[in-house]
């Protein structure tokens, strides 16, 4: 590659030698960053080796037994694996199901004529994106605990006197978590759609108006088709993240009452590793997750290239 570069750019040999020297110098300057990426992103991959050993913390790896793919076999007979996968997929599918909502929200915001109201809606709706899940938990707790705002308001209005414990509701936990995720993310996800809407040629709207189309029809025939490609890309990306249902969210909102139905794959990996201390099996489960996620990403990217003529990564 360096050769083609010098051949293309260096017309005289003196300049090309100079060029080459600069190239080496630049490579040297970039090497600390390469090393950094290696140390923090590639080195952990070597840790996958623990999945093939019966590793226990404290005992060096060369004195532990090599067990091959035993851990991966164990996954199929692990009774907890089924429910955990169901939780993960259910929560992921629910969040995919709510994916059109940010798009709808963006369309609604773009239809607002008043500048200050538009800015207000955008500013307020993106705020929850920037706060941590711990703060979301604190807010949700203050809203939905038995002494929280919602129960207080309900009893003041005389709607219901028996306090409802929303965050400890076993049957509704998936719904509650999906709504919380939506509350946190809707404004943020809408930004990208708003960017797409701003770039729509306004002549299209003029033409539609001349033809006598109303607001709903211009939205349906102009706005929605223009942002559909964005929607598809985001949808494909979320499919590749199927197994990565938000770890922090479910870790924070986990409690004894709902633990069974909120334990997603990432949470299970953490519990196996740090709580139970089964490093090897935990690594195997984590590896299984990473490999499937990468495969999903490749598949989705391939499909996108094939049908849209453009990849997503």
């Amino acid at each position: 590659m360096a050769l083609t570069l010098t051949a293309k750019k260096g017309k005289e040999s003196g300049r090309s030698r100079h060029f080459r020297k600069d190239g080496v110098k630049l490579l040297l300057m970039a090497s600390p960053f390469v090393l950094f990426a290696f140390a923090f992103s590639y080195v952990p991959l070597f840790g996958w080796i623990y999945a093939f050993f019966d590793y226990h913390p404290g005992i060096p790896l060369n004195r532990t037994e090599f067990i091959g793919i035993q851990n991966f076999r164990d996954m199929f007979s692990d009774p907890r694996m089924g429910p955990v996968l169901i939780n993960t997929l259910a929560l992921s599918f629910l969040s995919i199901l709510t994916a059109p909502i940010p798009m709808l929200f963006a369309v609604m915001v773009s239809e607002v004529k008043s500048g200050w109201f538009k800015r207000l809606v955008q500013t307020v709706s993106t705020l929850p994106h920037y706060i941590s899940w711990i703060i979301v938990y604190a807010l949700a707790f203050s809203m939905f605990s038995t002494e929280g705002a919602v129960n207080t308001i309900f009893s003041h209005l005389g709607i219901s006197d028996t306090p409802v414990n929303v965050l400890g509701n076993y049957d509704r936990v998936w719904t509650v978590q999906t709504l919380l995720l939506l509350w946190k993310g809707v404004g943020w996800s809408a930004i990208i759609y708003l960017a797409a809407i701003v770039s729509i040629d306004s002549e299209q709207y003029d033409a539609a108006k001349v033809d006598g189309a109303g607001r709903l029809r211009t939205i349906w025939h102009i706005t929605v088709p223009s942002i559909m490609p964005t929607f598809i890309v985001l949808l494909l990306l979320s499919i590749s993240n199927l197994l990565s249902a938000g770890f922090e969210q479910y870790l924070v909102f986990n409690n004894v009452l709902v633990a069974d139905r909120i334990e997603v794959l990432d949470l299970y990996v953490y519990r196996l590793g740090l709580v139970t201390g089964d490093y090897s099996y935990s690594t195997a489960v984590g590896m299984f997750k990473s490999v499937i996620s990468i495969l999903l990403l490749f598949t989705v990217n391939f499909l996108s290239k094939k049908f849209r003529g453009q990849g997503i990564v």
Binding site: A37, S41, P44, G47, W48, V269
Partner: peptide, 29 residues
Amino acid sequence: EEMLLRKYVYRFVLITMYFNAGFIPWYLT
């Protein structure tokens, strides 16, 4: 553009966005 192996260096760093070794390997590293 004159950087030697520029494309490879860039890809090597960028690709880290797309994979993750997992919890225990991260923790142990």
